[in-house]
Design a protein around this nucleic acid. Structure first.
Lengths: 168, 168
DNA sequence: TATTGTTATACTCTATAACTATA
DNA sequence: TATAGTTATAGAGTATAACAATA
């Protein structure tokens, strides 16, 4: 989707409960990622794929789990990325059934540029906050994510993220 | 609570900078919306469509602008929703070229249920936060969204949220 | 038999270009 | 001519089911 949040004057006043606010924030951030990824002809899905592969060389199966997709979906996803020269498949040495997916230099370069662009955009928005808010936000977001991860026994990661989500 | 230079709480939570943290949060929230929408066989796009129509009866053209999609995409989107009985097209009285899209009762019911489910999920996660964080977050998020909207001359909305149905 | 990955198939979502019917 | 909407077409993304190769 394109998720360019737009609409009539409903929220501009700031009369937003936190649930709606976080939903809107999610769409805004998602849209930022989408826009910067599109600059390099990447969909959010392709960007997530490259993001996951930044610090891993998983099997197709593991990749499916990491992305939350069916393995047949990942076949096509990697097919298209490989056709563009962003990803390569390598036979596994351990298991002759398995195939490892990894980034090419071009893939790595592309995802780094997209991530940098996204970081620039989001930072520019955060810079509009008052210093007190800017100081408090990182901790709250971190604690929120930790709480969520603990509750869901889930591995956190952001497709475009610059850093590894730890948790491994 | 005032400034805390190099927030140690954030680092303790797992060296996530705020950019990565917000990206992850966006994916988590987006995933929550996706999951609750899927419960009713709605994609995020269909849910956004229904969400937009909760308080509007726009022309196809306006709908395209609201969703950030091409008008031809909206034709198909509304086709599928109409086929399911969630949306109806009505000829415009003012302009014989134009067509208005609106929710059916079933569409309204469905989007309310999905929004309520999402609200429940997100609230449950927010409840894991310490009270101090829970008090601070809404204001920071609101101010962040207002800053973003002001900077981009854009009006905010979240396809699924609008208002929590609380007592619909 | 179970697992890994691919293929075949079908559907949603999206855009571009061409078309119609109004305006 | 310009605008509103649809249709035709193409491609990405997704899932289910069936399959081949390996374990």
């Amino acid at each position: 989707m394109t998720s360019r949040p737009a609409g009539p004057s409903a929220a501009a006043a700031g009369q937003l409960n936190v649930v709606d606010g976080l939903a809107q924030l999610a769409f805004v951030v998602y849209g930022m990622i989408e826009l910067r990824a599109a600059e390099h002809d990447l969909s959010v899905t392709q960007a997530r794929l490259l993001g996951v592969l930044r610090d891993r060389t998983p099997t197709m199966n593991e990749l499916a789990r990491l992305l939350g997709l069916d393995k047949s979906s990942v076949t096509g996803l990697v097919d298209r990325a490989e056709r563009r020269g962003l990803v390569v498949r390598t036979p596994s040495a351990d298991d002759r059934r398995a195939v490892l997916a990894g980034l090419t230099d071009e893939g790595r370069s592309l995802v780094s540029q997209a991530a940098a662009g996204f970081g620039t955009d989001l930072t520019a928005t955060l810079d509009l906050l008052a210093p007190a808010d800017r100081d408090l936000l990182p901790g709250i977001v971190s604690r929120l994510l930790v709480a969520y991860a603990a509750r869901h026994g889930v591995d956190l990661f952001a497709g475009l993220s610059t850093q590894v989500p730890a948790a491994d």
